[in-house]
């Protein structure tokens, strides 16, 4: 256990010394993905806004305030898409990096950070779109927005741990790549991304309360929508994050030298 933790800390600190590597590679990745397109990464912004627009148009509850619902969906989709992208791209991370893992001695955490940074850069475009939607739909910029910012930082903090856990999962159980992809697609309907929990429908209530992702969404959404500090959601999220980190450190410490034999 202690040895595993030492190994993990060693891997992470080496990766942090090599931060120029993953920063450079993440930028190359984004560049490559959008090479030869006219809008470049702005497509990410367009996609996001189009998605929010569609959801608002289709699911807007009749008679209720439209602005509130736009804000609700805009933030919900922002956080959900981010988490979904992180998890679904992480399962195949080590397989994708096979040639590097089999040819260099870079610490595994370098690949984790490379992917994390990529997701963050992509999310940056969605955040810009989200803020634009919030302002256009008339949400006043208030002090509780800072709590939302804190929520985003917490999500940022858990990202490398989430990536590590899913990457090991995918390396040990290649089938999980397909399972995770499917679960996430279904998961969107069991997470309050675009529906609101009014406490009446028991299934909805259950999906709301027992789904950990609910709380990751709510720490960003509630401060802006309701102007409150969601204590309960923050506590759940912090505990979930720490747990994820603990699992990530154990996996990294114990199995990082095995990965090269698995992929």
């Amino acid at each position: 256990m202690i040895a595993a933790l030492n190994g993990a800390v060693d891997d992470i600190s080496k990766a942090m010394k090599l931060h120029r590597v993953w920063i450079a590679l993440a930028h190359e990745d984004i560049g490559d993905q959008h090479r030869r397109t006219t809008l470049g990464p702005l497509w990410l912004l367009v996609n996001y806004v189009a998605f929010v627009g569609t959801f608002v148009f289709v699911f807007q509850p009749a008679g209720k305030d439209a602005a509130g619902y736009s804000a609700y969906v805009a933030i919900g989709l922002l956080v959900w898409f981010y988490l979904m992208e992180v998890m679904s791209t992480s399962v195949a991370l080590f397989q994708r990096e096979e040639s590097f893992i089999e040819g260099t001695t870079l610490p595994l955490f370098v690949y984790v950070m490379r992917l994390g940074l990529q997701s963050v850069i992509r999310a940056g475009y969605a955040i810009a779109g989200c803020i634009a939607i919030l302002i256009v739909s008339g949400s006043p910029v208030t002090f509780p927005w800072l709590w939302s910012l804190a929520g985003l930082l917490l999500i940022l903090f858990v990202t490398p741990a989430l990536t590590t856990v899913f990457a090991f999962l995918g390396a040990f159980f290649p089938d999980s790549q397909f399972i995770v992809g499917n679960l996430l697609r279904v998961g969107m309907f069991f997470t309050p991304v675009f529906w609101m929990n009014n406490g009446q429908d028991p299934i909805q209530k259950y999906a709301y309360e027992w789904n950990p992702f609910t709380y990751f969404l709510e720490i960003v959404r509630l401060p802006i929508i309701n102007g409150e500090f969601p204590v309960h959601a923050f506590i759940v999220t912090i505990i979930a994050s720490l747990l994820t980190w603990a699992i990530a450190l154990l996996l990294l410490g114990r199995y990082r030298k095995q990965v090269v034999f698995l992929i």
């Binding site: 120029r20 450079a24 560049g31 490559d32 089999e102 040819g103 260099t104």
Partner: peptide, 24 residues
Amino acid sequence: LFNINIGFRREATGRRNIVLRGLI
């Protein structure tokens, strides 16, 4: 030096690849 292509990115120039290779 195991495999010529390791650490090289197809889309990047030789110069940029030297930088990446060095960083790695």
